[in-house]
Design a protein around this nucleic acid. Structure first.
Length: 874
RNA sequence: GGGCGCGUAGCUCAGGGGUAGAGCGUCGCCCUUACAAGGCGAAUGUCGGCGGUUCGAAACCGUCCGCGCCCACCA
């Protein structure tokens, strides 16, 4: 601290330190909020409900910035609604995240040199529960640190008893409705996770491969097929050609010899084959390719499985025991030795599916699995959006949603995992299949066993909006809070989660939608717009930034980046800027408190207010309406920006500065301004609170003595407007800015006091003389004036005594530049007004605007010329 | 192959038929009795290219170039 600062008198009215220290206040404040039950919703309340269920974070790890981002927005929404008098519920919870969690725990075990099989199913599951307790606790801690105003009494986990009941109930109901069935089909198999996964859990990427053309058959009956997966030829049971393909018509129906085996396979005609691609002939492996499986079905072909679950060849012979990729090279080599490789294309880039969890190349595999028949469910899910019962925001995302729900394949829901909801189906000794609901006893007796698989993790999260509220029981919570209001989540899980909730919600709740609005956010990126990733070290732990700059700063930064549907770049610099904003709010309120800002008593009527007061109140009320409209449209970036500029530029900068003379003078005007400033701060802090809850709480309770801003009333636009005052203050701002620029150009130090004569006739600025002199450091006029600056506003003149130190050259240079700009402006406006087509077609207000520009340009030119003439000779 | 979106200041992005904007960064002056995490002032753009519509286009239409994302059973 500098010597000067130490000499400053301490402010008697304020117990607030000169810098905001978030770390000191955030933790205790949050605990107080929770203790007082502010976030607990009451199902018996008369208030209208407002409900958001959290997208349950996976218990696989800790929260990242993307979570912090979405949580900030959901918290802001529910905090505002609470202040607006809604029974606001933000329901927290976590997802067991089946395959993802099982993988991380297996990895942990791997470090101990063990596999899950060493532990056995029961012990392994117990181990995963331990993991859940540890990492789940970490996540909950992060949420508290962020300030998430969630109802902890309603915290849920997808594997809770109640939610498991919901899973069994809906499974049974779907089964009885024949919307769940068991079938043997080609599924996406991960040879590392050793489980089936659904279509959307497969990530396609372009890989380098090799396209080989190989000759099947003997003698005249040969045909060349192309493949990237030579190893599957061991399971070929046909070659397919297009029925109209003249090249191969003679072969259709005949059998040809399959190389490297003693089998012969038929040539079949199928319209699926594209005669233009490759040789126009396709090898058909029904057990290892979905298209081939379909061909096999049409032509009644045998399906030969040639690999085990780990992708190891099981066909007796020289390739047995080889991994699928080893087998590929070995088979190509063997065929080449036989002279059967007639062409090779390498590298051959093609799209290959990978497991979204472990990136292993997916092996399509014929397998018996459980399926959800989605067509009727997806139809309802599509219709709910089509008929407007559910709105998707931003609307451009609707198309993506429709494309998916309208073209959906059945959903494979069984997983060969241990962590998850076990499928409630029992098999009997005679092949009986019994599906058991939650209250039913499973069959007993010899030979009955439960299905060993678990359900896709998205099966249970698809029930989240109602399972968390007590379904299938008709609980008061369900009645009060369903349907939920907003589902806010990233656009990356529209299909995984949002569409599934739509399907299950409409089904389970008899056609009632799970949420009225789907608000889709972008993904958080680094400061250059690149994806953050752990592997590249660009991932940021939100805790680090919260510790360094405070939760409010992180939240404000995230909210300010939240343009609907677009990705959110965020860098540490921006968090610093937000921290600075929080500190600005802090110090402005400190200043206000030192100057008697209060919310006590009625706001004085407009007649008793200065133009400055009326201006800020007019702007304040406009800002309330603006912020409300932006909130209702999920425009977080814009509302944050609007509040930032209103608070910093208009309130903390202009209003506070303009009011300083009033405060210093004291008396009744100071009291009035204190009351106005108190009002403005009260409202501004409330408007900011949903985004920056901590700093606003601290300041608001100090300012108002109120219990908590969390439960304060949300501001309402009083309708007060004063356009004349707004114009007047704008003019005042122009005058001040113009003189400041002159001063700066003249090299005057900001604090240097300068004798000046103010002539404010012809403007409405006379009452502001004291403020102008204060802001511009102008002393009462002296006797001599070496230079004169004429202000741009009609009738206002400020003559400054620069004691002969005026830099004439600099001033001439600036004036010449201004003159050129004004003349250019005049020329443009003149040209425009001389254009008859323009006059005839342009709307009146535009023409008036141009006329205004012309006359202002004229005035400026005149003024600048006069100034130039008044300058002393160099 | 189909669909969606985006190219605006050094960076990240708003805007959107009628005088080009913000934050950060840059340059200069300043501890001016709330705040140096601050104040004041300044500089910076052929709004991706080319056509068209219009009195007027950065904005609307077409087209080209560059980039991103989503979907798809390219053997």
């Amino acid at each position: 601290m500098t010597e000067n600062a130490q000499q400053q008198p301490s402010a008697p009215d304020s117990e607030l330190p000169t810098q905001y220290a978030p770390a000191d206040v955030e933790g205790p404040l949050y605990e107080r909020w929770v203790e007082r039950g502010y976030f607990e919703a009451d199902a018996k309340s008369e208030k209208p409900p407002y409900t958001i269920v959290i997208p349950p974070p996976n218990v696989t790890g800790s929260l990242h910035l993307g979570h912090a981002f979405q949580h900030t927005l959901m918290d802001a929404l529910t905090r505002r609604k609470r202040m607006q008098g809604f029974e606001s519920l933000w329901l927290p919870g976590m997802d067991h995240a089946g395959i993802a969690t099982q993988n991380v725990v297996e990895r942990e075990l791997g470090k101990e040199g063990k596999s899950r099989h060493d532990l056995g199913r029961e012990a392994f599951v117990e181990r995963v529960w331990q993991w859940k307790d540890e990492y789940g606790g970490k996540i909950l801690g992060q949420m508290r640190r962020l300030g998430d105003g969630v109802d902890w009494t309603r915290e849920r986990f997808t594997m809770d008893e109640g939610l498991s009941q919901a899973v069994q109930t809906i499974f049974k109901r779907l089964y009885d409705d024949e919307l769940i069935y068991r079938a043997e089909r080609i599924i996406n198999w991960c040879p590392r996770c050793l489980t089936a996964i659904s279509d959307i859990e497969v990530e396609y990427q372009d890989d380098d491969g090799e396209l080989v053309s190989m000759k099947y058959g003997e003698g005249d009956d040969t045909i060349v097929v192309a493949t990237t997966r030579a190893e599957t030829m061991l399971g070929d049971t046909a070659v397919a050609v297009h029925p109209d393909d003249e090249r191969y018509k003679h072969l259709v129906g005949r059998h040809i010899k399959l190389p490297l085996t003693d089998r012969t396979i038929p040539v079949v005609a199928d319209t699926h084959v594209d005669p233009e691609f490759g040789t126009g002939a396709v090898k058909v492996t029904p057990a290892h390719d979905p298209n081939d499986f379909a061909i096999g079905q049409r032509h009644d072909l045998e399906s030969l499985t040639v690999m085990d679950e780990r992708g190891v060849i099981t066909v007796h012979g020289p390739f047995e025991g080889l991994d699928r990729f080893e087998a590929r090279s070995a088979i190509v080599a063997a065929l080449r030795a036989d002279g059967r490789i007639v062409a090779e294309k390498r590298p051959y880039v093609h799209s290959v599916g990978h497991c979204s969890r472990c990136k292993t190349t997916i092996e399509p595999r014929l397998s018996m699995q459980w399926w959800v028949k989605v067509a009727p469910l997806a139809k309802a899910a599509g219709d709910a959006v089509r008929d407007g019962r559910v709105k998707i925001h931003p609307q451009e995302m609707e198309k993506r949603y429709f494309d998916w729900v309208d073209n959906l394949h059945d959903w494979c829901i069984s997983r060969q995992l241990w962590w998850g909801h076990r499928i409630p189906v029992w098999y009997g000794p005679e092949g009986e299949v019994v599906c058991v609901g939650p209250d039913e006893e499973p069959p007993t007796g010899e030979g009955w066993t439960q299905d060993s698989d678990v359900l896709d993790t998205w099966f249970s999260s698809g029930l989240w909006p109602f399972s968390t509220l007590g379904w299938p029981e008709q609980t008061p919570d369900l009645k009060k809070f369903y349907p939920t209001d907003v589902l806010l989540t990233g656009h990356d899980i529209i299909f995984f989660w949002v569409a599934r909730m739509m399907m299950f919600g409409l089904y389970a709740m008899d056609g009632e939608v799970p949420f009225k609005t789907i608000a889709l956010t972008g993904l958080v990126r680094d400061q250059f717009g690149k994806k953050m990733s752990k592997s590249s070290g660009t991932a940021v732990d939100p805790l680090d930034w919260m510790n360094a700059y405070g939760s409010d700063a992180v939240r404000f930064t995230l909210a300010r980046g939240a343009n609907p549907g677009t990705d959110v770049p965020i860098g540490e610099d921006w968090v610093q800027a937000s921290r600075n904003f929080a500190n600005k709010i802090w110090n402005a309120t400190r200043f206000a408190l030192m100057n008697g800002a209060t919310i006590e008593g009625e706001l004085p009527p407009a007649e008793r207010l200065s133009a400055t007061d009326r201006w800020i109140l007019s702007r304040l009320n406009k800002t309330i309406s603006q912020v409300d409209a932006l909130y209702d449209d999920f425009q977080f970036a814009k509302l944050s920006d609007a509040l930032y500029h209103f608070a910093w530029d208009e309130v903390f900068d202009w209003y506070v500065e303009l009011s300083k003379t009033t405060f210093m003078a004291g008396g009744e005007p100071a009291k009035v301004s204190g009351r106005v400033l108190g009002e403005v701060l009260d409202v501004t802090l409330k408007l900011l609170h949903p985004i920056v809850p901590f700093v606003t709480e601290t300041l608001w309770t100090t300012l108002t003595g109120g219990e908590s801003i969390v439960v304060a009333d949300w501001p309402k636009d009083s309708g007060f407007r004063d356009e004349a005052a707004e114009r007047e203050i704008e003019t005042l701002q122009q005058v001040i800015t113009e003189v400041r620029r002159f001063r700066a150009d003249q090299g005057l130090q900001p604090g240097q006091r300068v004798p000046a004569r103010l002539t404010l006739t012809g403007t409405a600025l006379a009452p502001h003389e004291a403020a102008i002199r204060q802001l511009l450091r102008l002393q009462p006029e002296g006797d001599t004036f070496a230079a004169t600056a004429t202000l741009p506003v009609a009738g206002a003149t400020v003559a400054l005594d620069l004691s002969g130190t005026i830099d004439v050259a600099a001033e001439r240079k600036r004036l010449a530049k201004d003159l050129a700009a004004a003349e250019k402006e005049k020329a443009q406006a003149t040209a425009k007004l001389g254009n008859e087509a323009f006059l005839a077609k342009a709307p009146d207000n535009v023409v008036d605007k141009i006329r205004g520009r012309l006359s202002k340009a004229d005035e400026d030119i005149e003024r600048i010329k006069a100034q130039l003439e008044s300058l002393p000779q160099a």
